[in-house]
């Protein structure tokens, strides 16, 4: 069972995760803007920017984050923004999005000049996240855990970050036991997605380069 502190941590993180979302007018644009490679490119760039802002607002609410060294806060966010973005957009490809949005978003991504070699691993990741049937609590905790990775470049006080991440991992482990009692491997599979995210992150830099070129 979660102890009192863990329960408080979980509801606090979940509340922040639900509160800080891509603004509704952005979602409307997703549906309204007409379909061309340029439009899709601009829209995805705008969504990525808005997503970084949403991510920072969420991260400010992670208990202990704002007491970390200021430059370490920047390094953590810079190092994890891409992964957190893929994780959050993965939710769009599970049952979370209203009917129709997912198909439109998928079409826009496929027709935005991003080369096929990046599209395939991206949608494989979305599919593997979907298969895990994750609860909102798991998404919120996994996002916080991704951000609090002590091994990001330029982190000076890795131990302080590690302590925060460990507290989150412990809560996630218990949540997995409670929410997926018949799947003992569930927690391990969630952590496995984090490694998959790292590969996507690695591809992302190359993807941006080739996207700019085309």
């Amino acid at each position: 069972e979660l102890n009192q502190d863990q329960q408080a941590l979980l509801s606090y993180i979940l509340d922040a995760y639900n509160k800080h979302r891509i603004p509704p007018d952005m979602a409307k644009k997703l549906l309204q803007e007409q379909f061309s490679t340029e439009e899709n490119f601009l829209l995805l760039t705008e969504m990525a920017t808005s997503h970084v802002q949403v991510l920072v607002e969420f991260t400010k609410n992670i208990p202990g984050f704002q007491s970390l060294d200021h430059e370490d806060q920047i390094a953590l966010l810079k190092g994890s923004a891409v992964e957190a973005m893929f994780l959050r957009s993965a939710q769009a490809f599970t049952r979370k999005m209203p009917h129709g949005h997912t198909e439109v978003l998928e079409e826009r991504i496929r027709k935005s000049g991003i080369s096929e070699e990046f599209i395939v691993p991206m949608f494989n990741f979305y599919k593997s996240i979907g298969e895990l049937q994750m609860m909102q609590e798991e998404h919120a905790l996994l996002t916080a855990i991704t951000i609090l990775s002590p091994d990001r470049p330029y982190i000076r006080d890795q131990q302080a970050v590690e302590l925060l991440q460990e507290a989150m991992l412990e809560v996630l482990r218990k949540v997995c036991k409670l929410k997926h009692p018949q799947e003992p491997q569930h927690f391990a599979r969630l952590l496995g997605r984090l490694t998959e995210l790292r590969t996507l992150h690695h591809h992302h830099a190359e993807m941006l380069e080739s996207w700019r070129m085309s």
Binding site: V56, K60, H70, L77
Partner: peptide, 21 residues
Amino acid sequence: PASNLGLEDIIRKALMGTVEE
């Protein structure tokens, strides 16, 4: 607009900003 700022600029700006209620 924010979209032509670099990733770090967007992060610094958002971190500085007050949490809007």
